[in-house]
Structure formats: structure tokens, C-alpha cells
């Protein structure tokens, strides 16, 4: 996937300003940056949730706008934070929606098997007949991830997946992200606020400031004292734990 000169303006003010980068396949890429830097907007435009003003998002040699929405849904999945459902829906029914791009409302035998796998993978077997609105935040998040797995896409986009989760669930979430990439071979792009999660669990980091890319590179390249201080405008120290750079800020 290739992003070229992507721009979005709200009321004439550029929120995302001519952003260009190449998304390496089969890796975990974290988008970080201060509030209002435009990372979520970039994510939204990559996933077609937000209309872009100019520029292009090239996906398999074709601009994302030229893809049939349904075809794209088989290749690229996005999970955002605003998921409120008014319906009475069980976990299994939610996961089954992941097969919608393939089979519509009629779930086939093959779909059932994939749904089963996804539920098993996210360890949701005991909850599968519970209603979504009766689950805790962490369980609900896992149910949505299971749905994304059932959707069986090459690319998975996650918008702040650790938001509103406690340390235990957030860390688990990041481990799942790693597994999606390592075990299932997906390319995972996520927006993160916690720099250390980004450092510990991703391969590449793309740092945004004021709608522009401030730095894009491997974790080692971005996680330096100077770069981070420049991006966030606070003092940083870098420690090394388990061979990974972790930051302390104050």
C-alpha cells in the first residue's frame, strides 16, 4: 500500500498536509504523534471512512476510490473506537458479520468454520452466546478483533485499540496485534498514544506533527531522545529493556 500526497482540509485549514509514505507489507506499523497531528485522519482516509481532498491511496496498484467497496472489504479491515450497537447481538453473530463481504446475509458451512476459528483464536468460546452489551470493555474489544479475523483481510487497521482499556487488557491487545502479524501474516497499521507500546510491539513507527510526517522509520530509528523531544516538545530519556528502546518522559 502506498500513500501519496494525501491532504485533508477542514474549513481551509490543512489537517493532513501532503503525506507520502509506503506501507511495508507483513509488518506492524504504528502511527504516533501529539493530539491533532492528523494520524487518525490519515488512518480514516486510508480506510475510506473519511473522504480525502487530494492525493491518493494506492492499494494493489489501484486507487482506493476505484475499488468496489465490497472487494476492498475482503482485503482491508478497519476497527475504530466508536462501536455502539443498538441491536441485541451475540458475540457469535457479531463475528459472523465478518463474513458479510463474502457471503452477504447467508452464512455458508465454510464461513461457519472460519467463524469458529476466529472465536477460538480470540478465546471467546465461553462467551459466544452472550450479548455484546453484556460484555466488559476488554471482552468486547476481543469480539471485534475476532470479527476482523473472520473478515480474513491482508490489511488490518486499528484506531487506538488500547483506548479505554486497563494496563492488563491494553497489553494483551498489543500482544494480539503482534500475533495478527506474526502468526496470521497480516499487515497491521494502528494509531497509538502510548509510545512505549509502539516501540515494543511494532516494526515501524510513523510520527506525525501538524499534519505532516515528522519521522518514518524502524523503531530504532524513531525512538531516539532527539527525535521524540522534537515531536512531543518534552524531555525524553531512552532506556533499553529486553533489547527494545523504551522512553521515559517528564
Amino acid at each position: 500500500m502506498f500513500v501519496k500526497e494525501l491532504t485533508k482540509k477542514y474549513d481551509g485549514k490543512p489537517v493532513v498536509d501532503s503525506v507520502t509514505f509506503d506501507i511495508p507489507k507483513g509488518s506492524v506499523i504504528s502511527l504516533i504523534g501529539p493530539n491533532g497531528a492528523g494520524k487518525s485522519t490519515v488512518m480514516g482516509m486510508i480506510s475510506r471512512l473519511i473522504a480525502k481532498d487530494t492525493g491518493m491511496v494506492e492499494f494493489d496498484g489501484k486507487d482506493i476510490g476505484k475499488w468496489k467497496s465490497r472487494e476492498l472489504a475482503k482485503r482491508l479491515a478497519i476497527l475504530t473506537q466508536t462501536n455502539q450497537i443498538q441491536m441485541k447481538l451475540t458475540v457469535r453473530e457479531l463475528v459472523a458479520f465478518g463474513r458479510f463481504p463474502y457471503s452477504g446475509n447467508r452464512i455458508t458451512k465454510a464461513d461457519e468454520a472460519i467463524i469458529d476459528q476466529a472465536i477460538e483464536y480470540m478465546e471467546l468460546r465461553e462467551f459466544e452466546d452472550r450479548f455484546i452489551d453484556e460484555l466488559s470493555g476488554g471482552q468486547r474489544q476481543r469480539a471485534y478483533i475476532a470479527m476482523v479475523i473472520a473478515q480474513d483481510t491482508e490489511y488490518v487497521l486499528l484506531d487506538e485499540p488500547t483506548n479505554n482499556l486497563d494496563i492488563y487488557h491494553a497489553t494483551n491487545m498489543m500482544k494480539i496485534v503482534r500475533k495478527l502479524c506474526d502468526e496470521l501474516g497480516k499487515t497491521v497499521i494502528l494509531v497509538l498514544h502510548e509510545i512505549n507500546y509502539a516501540a515494543f510491539y511494532s516494526d515501524y513507527i510513523c510520527a506525525f506533527v501538524d499534519g505532516k510526517i515528522a519521522r518514518f522509520g524502524t523503531v530504532e530509528e524513531v525512538m531516539t531522545k532527539e527525535t521524540l523531544s522534537e515531536i512531543y516538545k518534552v524531555d525524553f530519556e531512552i532506556l533499553r529493556i529486553s533489547g527494545k528502546p523504551l522512553s521515559i518522559y517528564y
Binding site: 480506510s47 475510506r48 467497496s69 472487494e71 478497519i78 476497527l79 466508536t82 462501536n83 473478515q151
Partner: peptide, 10 residues
């Protein structure tokens, strides 16, 4: 499922 999920599912 909401606007974003619907778009996600094509």
C-alpha cells in the same frame, strides 16, 4: 452496526 463498521464490511 454503525456507519464505520458498515463501510468496513463493504
Amino acid at each position: 452496526l454503525g456507519r464505520q463498521q458498515a463501510i468496513n464490511l463493504g
